[in-house]
Each structure stands twice: as structure tokens, then as C-alpha cells.
Nucleic acid binder design. Structure first.
Lengths: 190, 190
DNA sequence: AACGTTACGGAACAACGTTCCGTTTGTCGA
DNA sequence: TCGACAAACGGAACGTTGTTCCGTAACGTT
């Protein structure tokens, strides 16, 4: 009880305003230039100095997480509900992966950042894994239990595999969704 | 015949010496720090100035290509020969992909560079594709003809897919070879 | 040996992430 | 309403990188 039950002491108005402006600006810049856009660009778009960016979001990864938190959450929920709305766990899995792929391919550079070994993105990595790995595990287990999914694939291999397949620039000769479909076919029980 | 059949006019001794030292140094630094190591590190290790690096290799990608050319060539040859030494085109494909994966996972950061949309790596991208795509196509076609491989997967999807699965830091929970195996299983004819 | 050419080295520039600190601005009690 | 203090701000400044540029040194030839 070092801090009792007291709530956070309500921040200053400009601080809240700037955080919100930063999130909006970052979302816009990420769409236009990808998640690796210069911090200065985001600061400029939000009408604040770079110092303000770093006060609100200690690392770039924190900003990325904040911008996409809602959508990651929605993706996790979609996975948790997927099993309830179909009688085939494999189809539930496929549907969920579809949602995940849609999310990744519309965020330029995000898949790359997710897989990056740059320690800068540690937080991003951790957040996605924390939130989505358990969901993947449950879908996988349901599939295995129903005899539809092979039992030697971990959720980590599923998520990182799909993530890896989503990396890279758009290209006519490479259909992400089709390739992910091939990967999923490889996960069917023999 | 603007230049006739005359050969290149033989470069200076120090130029040849430095190019060789640069290749050795780059190979060593790539092993130690990955293919994204600072150019200054490579120059220092080779005992030359940065200007010399850029004179010999206009872009970082040219240096990477030069360092790995032999191995990529060997990989391409292995693929061309794979079909001759087995009666199962699918196993030939699997064996070749194994060679490719071994190559990628031992080159820290190379898979990432290959998939990168940074125009800096355009040359690298082009070289790998030029050399390996035709090989993949032939292996795939042989597999399809034998009824062992599904006919709706392109060599681009094969190579970029496998490349994507090889991206990222080592991790106990993610077994690259196993995950690639799953992907390949998905490519079997139904 | 002298000369022209080739190649070298590293200073210099630009772009970026990140830190730091003098200044401004909210907030709250008097 | 006013004053004071903490919170938050802005952007200059620093370190690291890729890349260019040019005065200088080394090579090879006559």
C-alpha cells in the first residue's frame, strides 16, 4: 500500500491534448509513410516538438503499440470468438489468420518491425506476442482436438510464420493471402 | 564494336589488393555483426578509408552480393542438379529448400535485407531473384508434372515465402526449419 | 627519373534517433 | 484575482550512420 488506492493525479490539459494529437498524427503518417517514418515528421504533423513525442512515448515502439492497440485488441477478440461461430476449428483458425493478415498488410512496414531484431522494437514484439499468442494457442488446440490440425506446430510458429509471409513490398508475383493459404494447408492434420 | 574485343586494361595493384581485403573484411564483419554492419567498420577492418569502399562497391548491396556470390551460385547449381539425384521431385525440392534455408539462417540479417523494401537493396533483390527464381521454377514444374506438387504456387511465392519464414532473431520457440517444413507440406498436391 | 593517371583517405554533409535544459504554461491554494 | 510551483514544452545539440567530394599519394609507363 505504498501508494494507497489513489488514482493518477489527472494530467494537465495540454498534455492530454498533445498525446491525442500525437496519436492522430502518428496514425496518419504511418499510413502515408509506414511505421518507420521519421519522428520529426510525426512531431511536425502534430504541431509539437520532438521532445514532446519522447515524453509521451519513450520509444518509437510505444507509439506504434499505442496507435494499433485498438486493432490488435479487436483481432484478439475476433480470435477468441472465432471458435463459437463455426463448427470447424480449422475454418475458425483460417478466418482468424485472415483477419490478422488483413491487419498486417494494410500497415506498411509493421510486419517487418514485428520481426525485426532491433531492440528498439522489443516492446512491440512483446505486446503482440502477449496478446495474440494465447489466442493462437487456443485455436490451435481446438483444431488438434478435433483432429483437423497437426499437433506439432506451436502458436509461435504460426504467428511468426504468418508474420514473416507478410513482410516486404507489394508485388504482382507475390500474393500474400495465397501464400499464407499454402502455409495453413500445411498445418492440416495428415 | 565501339570497344572492340579489348579486355579491361588491368587495374592497379593496390586497387586489386584493396578489393580483396574489402571482401574478406566484409565477410568477417557480416558474420560478426550481420549484413547491416556500419560501412566504417568494414573499412576499418580492411584497413582502408570509407571512400575506397564506395569506389569498389557503389552501394552496400553490391558488397553483399559480391561477398555471397559464390554461395548463391552454389545454391543455384545444387538446385539444378537436385532433380538428377532423386526420383521424387518433391524430395528434390525439399532438399534444395533445405540448402537455401541453411544459407539464409547462417547469414545474420540477410533474409531481412532480401525482403526489405529499402531501394538500397534493389540490386541484392534482383540478383537473388535472377539466379534462384528460374531454379525454383524448374523444380516446381517437375513436381507438378509428377503430380507431387500443387500447381498453383509460383516460384516467387516459394522463394519469398521461405525467405520470409527465415527472417528474425533466433528464438527457442521458433524452429525455422520445422516451420519451412510445414510450408512445404502445404505445397504437396492434394 | 619524371609524368600522367588511377586510386586513396578521411573530412564534410545530410538524415536520423535521442537527450537535455532553459522557457512556457497549466493548476491550485490564498 | 493573483502568485508560485510543478508539469510540460520546444528545439538546439549530440552521437551514429550513409554517402559524397577533393586534395594528396601511389602506381606504372616512358
Amino acid at each position: 500500500m505504498t501508494e494507497g488506492t489513489g488514482r493518477a493525479p489527472r494530467r494537465r490539459a495540454d498534455a492530454r491534448r498533445n498525446e491525442s494529437a500525437l496519436l492522430d498524427a502518428a496514425a496518419a503518417v504511418f499510413v502515408a509513410s509506414g511505421v518507420e517514418a521519421p519522428v520529426r515528421d510525426i512531431a511536425a504533423k502534430a504541431g509539437v516538438g520532438v521532445g514532446t513525442v519522447y515524453r509521451h512515448f519513450p520509444t518509437r515502439a510505444d507509439l506504434v503499440v499505442a496507435v494499433y492497440r485498438h486493432q490488435v485488441e479487436a483481432c484478439a477478440v475476433a480470435g477468441e470468438q472465432a471458435l463459437e461461430h463455426t463448427d470447424s476449428p480449422f475454418e475458425a483458425l483460417r478466418g482468424w489468420i485472415d483477419v490478422f493478415v488483413d491487419f498486417l498488410v494494410t500497415k506498411h512496414g509493421l510486419a517487418g518491425a514485428l520481426q525485426s531484431d532491433d531492440p528498439q522494437f522489443q516492446v512491440l514484439h512483446a505486446y503482440f506476442l502477449d496478446r495474440l499468442l494465447p489466442v493462437g494457442t487456443r485455436l490451435l488446440e481446438a483444431g488438434v482436438a478435433a483432429g483437423e490440425v497437426r499437433d506439432d506446430v506451436s502458436a509461435m510458429e504460426l504467428m511468426r510464420g504468418v508474420g514473416g509471409l507478410c513482410i516486404g513490398p507489394a508485388d504482382d508475383r507475390y500474393d500474400v493471402r495465397h501464400t499464407v493459404g499454402v502455409f495453413l494447408d500445411g498445418m492440416r492434420a495428415p
